[in-house]
């Protein structure tokens, strides 16, 4: 394998395990994987971060949604090697170390936006990415923003209510929602929550 210094082609043979390092929830994490390793499997199998769920594995269900440099993507439709060096936020990165839920997580709990919980990590990450883009959405925008995720339990009403509440909670806190994927992030940045 050739090193990636930006001037050479990076190559790997089909069964070669190559070093891949991602900053996951603020921490650099490295594993050696074959090129065909999906980002979803890299998280679950190699980093043992099993909060990211795998449903359909072809981009339809949204259960594997994570944030790549702040923007939501399907981790089953990206190869780990392809996003080497970049920054990821997963469901494990949302709650504070003391267990305080992120406003989106709290809102899903408050509105029964989940039942079995399988789709929930994907919905929560999609909602985080959506609210970062659109902090003050109307109900149609919420519907469209969440339309890329499937839930077979709830009938969606609780989920839509949760996203609506989370939008209010996040904008009340008056910091950019991009920085709010971790509850303790704005404390670390010294921002005033009362804003």
């Amino acid at each position: 394998m050739t090193a990636t210094d930006g001037t050479t082609t990076r190559t790997a043979t089909a069964h070669e395990r190559v070093e891949v390092t991602l900053t996951v929830n603020g921490t650099p994490r490295t594993a050696f994987v074959a090129p065909r390793r999906l980002l979803s499997d890299f998280l679950r199998h190699d980093l043992e971060l099993t909060g990211t769920h795998v449903g359909c594995e072809h981009g339809v269900c949204g259960a594997c949604t994570v944030l790549l440099d702040g923007a939501p993507i399907r981790s089953c439709l990206a190869f780990a090697i392809s996003v080497d060096g970049r920054e990821l936020t997963t469901i494990e990165g949302l709650a504070a170390d003391d267990g305080t839920l992120h406003p989106v997580q709290q809102a899903f709990r408050d509105h029964h936006g989940l039942q079995c919980g399988f789709c929930t990590p994907g919905f929560v990450m999609s909602a985080c990415g959506f609210l970062a883009e659109n902090p003050d959405p109307d109900e149609d925008e919420i519907r469209e923003g969440m339309a890329g995720n499937l839930c077979r339990c709830t009938g969606y009403a609780g989920i839509l209510d949760a996203v609506k509440q989370a939008a209010g909670d996040i904008s009340d806190r008056a910091t950019h929602p991009c920085e709010q994927h971790r509850v303790d992030a704005d404390v670390a940045n010294g921002n005033d929550r009362e804003g």
């Binding site: 930006g6 082609t9 990076r10 089909a14 065909r36 090697i81």
Partner: peptide, 16 residues
């Protein structure tokens, strides 16, 4: 399902 194995090339330029 998982993709079958493939060799991987990530060139740095259009020419490459």
């Amino acid at each position: 399902m998982k993709p079958s194995a493939f060799a991987y090339h990530a060139p740095h330029s259009l020419e490459a």
